[in-house]
Simulated scan of single mutants.
Amino acid sequence: MTKMHNQSISLKRLAGWLGVVGVSIVAGFPIVAQSQGILNPRPSIFNEPPYNQAPGTTPGTTPPVAPTAPTAPTAPTAPTAPTAPTTPPTGATPDAANNIVALAAANTSFKTLTAALQAAGLTETLSGTGPFTVFAPTDEAFAALPQDALQELLRPENRQLLVQILTYHVVPARVQSTELQPGEVQTVEGEAVNVKTSGNQVTVNDARVVQPDIQASNGVIHAIDRVLLPPNL
């Protein structure tokens, strides 16, 4: 009993000594250390930077933001087709290239006639709306006149006579060769020409139609092989 009692006392003393020592150890740490949590450690350092950074990032930097997908380019607007003009350009005359004067000037058989029309001042009239039918002498027909006659007719002082002769070749209507009937046909000059037909052959006074129905925008041309002279000359 005495031995067990002594052991019990020894154990109590040991426990009390350990308690005093534990208190002394704790009491021996500086107050600053206790306030910094040395006795109560902070959570694991793996929860703090740089260990909590996302993979592939540099410590101390903000994780990169995923790039925005590029916007698809807008298709270019197709250019608007230009509007066609509704009126002809200023100064343009409809069918100007196809009127009687233009066709005569473009035909190599009517060079003398073209010069005569210009000398007589009839180009503007025969470029008008018409309609006209012109029995047009060819260059060979004018060449059949006396040599000095044509030169005299083209002189300015003989202009009125030239106008009288040329207008005797013009009918104030569009008449195709198939529409010509035997008989007299009134001309712009005032006197009539005498038309004869025989099958497909047409004669005007003593001139023969060598090329009929040259179509113009303001009438028709019938080429003849002689110059017509008014009866009162």
Rank of each mutant, 00 (worst) to 15 (best):
T114I: 08
P49R: 02
L153T: 07
D225S: 04
A119E: 05
N200H: 08
H5R: 13
T187P: 08
A144W: 05
E48M: 12
A105Q: 14
L233G: 10
P131V: 10
S109T: 12
Q215S: 12
E191V: 01
G91M: 11
E157M: 02
V175K: 02
L166T: 06
D213I: 07
A92P: 05
A116W: 10
L122C: 09
G19Q: 04
F29S: 09
F132L: 06
A223T: 02
S24A: 15
D139Q: 11
H5D: 12
T74D: 08
T83S: 14
T86M: 13
G16K: 12
R174S: 14
S109F: 03
P156Q: 11
A116Q: 06
P212G: 04
Q160A: 15
R42H: 05
Y168S: 08
L166K: 08
N194L: 06
A120M: 10
T129G: 14
P41F: 00
S127E: 03
A223R: 01
P70H: 06
V101W: 11
A149G: 00
L228T: 08
T57C: 12
H169D: 06
L122F: 02
A96Y: 00
L11E: 10
Y51A: 09
D213Y: 05
E189I: 09
D95C: 06
A33V: 14
F142W: 03
S198P: 01
G199F: 02
V195Y: 06
T203I: 07
P55Q: 13
F142P: 07
T178N: 14
A223F: 00
K3F: 13
L113R: 05
G183N: 07
